[in-house]
């Protein structure tokens, strides 16, 4: 709690962030108590940074009752990978990394081209890692405000032995009585920050003074303007004929696969400025930054059914 003693004594001072934080802590502890072998998915992105703070609040002074895991697409921004390792070490918690590169080597993932987006194939590596370690629950940082398929997802979201999500066959979820029971081979995806919005996340990062990867803040970068999005120039993304490279101030709202995660023009160098921009912004987080969610209206729904987060 970031509330001071005076506020604590005043019951009316229970803000929406307090409510969301307390709900998330309760959810994390339910996972720890009811699941035999849970894992927390930590990518280094802002939502999972918030998850880690919530886990600290739920479990300290103990160690976390689960390891952290990252599914590395091999297309991550280097600043984010560096941050991921730094934060895990700082917390003194165990970090498992499973990389899609290995899935490609083993022939589990077959790409059409070397530089295509790897987001669609993350599910394969994730499901392989789940079965390798026998995880029965994966705690993730997905939020219901991100996308309409997510708006219908439970906080404890059941996946069958193929890792699939069936929107028509979800367990009813009432009060805060979560059903975490699984048979061997099945697992539960748990989303403690389901009810948070992008603005809540930024407000919480500000309130808790959380460190996040530098590329969330405005910085100078070479970008290409393509289909009204800004694409970051990297070894994966090079200008095509007729396109020019511009050097400008940008920040990332999400930090996924480098080949399809687009920054937005921004001067926001600190959390406060980002909060103002977020409150003013007119485009949803995924709409602005994910090329892969735009391929079809139902792309997220389809990917989730296949086992994606």
């Amino acid at each position: 709690m970031f509330l001071n003693q005076n506020k604590m004594n005043q019951q009316s001072y229970f803000t929406h962030l307090d409510a969301l934080e307390n709900e998330a802590i309760h959810i994390m502890r339910e996972v720890a108590a009811e699941c035999a072998n849970p894992v927390l998915l930590f990518s280094g992105g802002k939502d999972s940074v918030v998850l880690l703070r919530l886990a600290e609040k739920a479990f300290r002074p103990s160690h976390f009752p689960f390891p952290l895991m990252h599914i590395d697409t091999g297309h991550n921004f280097p600043e984010v990978i560096e941050f991921r390792d730094y934060r895990a070490k700082q917390l003194g918690e165990r970090l498992i990394v499973r990389s899609m590169e290995d899935s490609i080597q083993r022939g589990r993932v077959i790409l059409r081209s070397k530089n295509q987006s790897r987001n669609p194939f993350q599910a394969v590596t994730l499901l392989d890692a789940i079965s390798e370690f026998g995880f029965d629950a994966c705690i993730g940082g997905a939020r219901r405000d991100e996308e309409k398929a997510r708006a219908k997802e439970r906080i404890f979201s059941f996946r069958d032995e193929f890792g699939q999500w069936d929107p028509k066959n979800q367990r009813p979820e009432l009060w805060s009585l979560y059903n975490a029971r699984t048979h061997p081979g099945e697992n539960i995806r748990v989303f403690p920050i389901s009810n948070w919005t992008e603005l809540d996340i930024w407000q919480y990062i500000g309130r808790e003074q959380l460190e996040i990867p530098s590329i969330y803040y405005a910085h100078e970068r070479d970008v290409i303007v393509r289909n009204s999005s800004l694409l970051p120039v990297s070894y994966l993304v090079q200008p095509e004929a007729g396109e020019s490279v511009q050097h400008m101030m940008v920040r990332f709202r999400t930090v996924g696969d480098m080949s399809c995660t687009c920054p937005v023009a921004s001067q926001a160098r600190g959390v406060e400025e980002i909060i103002v921009e977020t409150a003013l912004t007119r485009i949803t987080e995924r709409g602005a930054t994910r090329m892969d969610d735009r391929t079809s209206e139902a792309s997220m729904e389809l990917r989730k059914r296949e086992g994606y987060f």
Binding site: A151, P167, K168, N195, T197, A298, E301
Partner: peptide, 20 residues
């Protein structure tokens, strides 16, 4: 909501919306 719902013109389940 979901593609399945739009095709059939129904709503399947509880959806959560947020505004402030």
């Amino acid at each position: 909501g979901l593609q399945a719902e739009r095709e059939q013109g129904i709503t399947i389940d509880v959806a959560y919306r947020y505004f402030n």
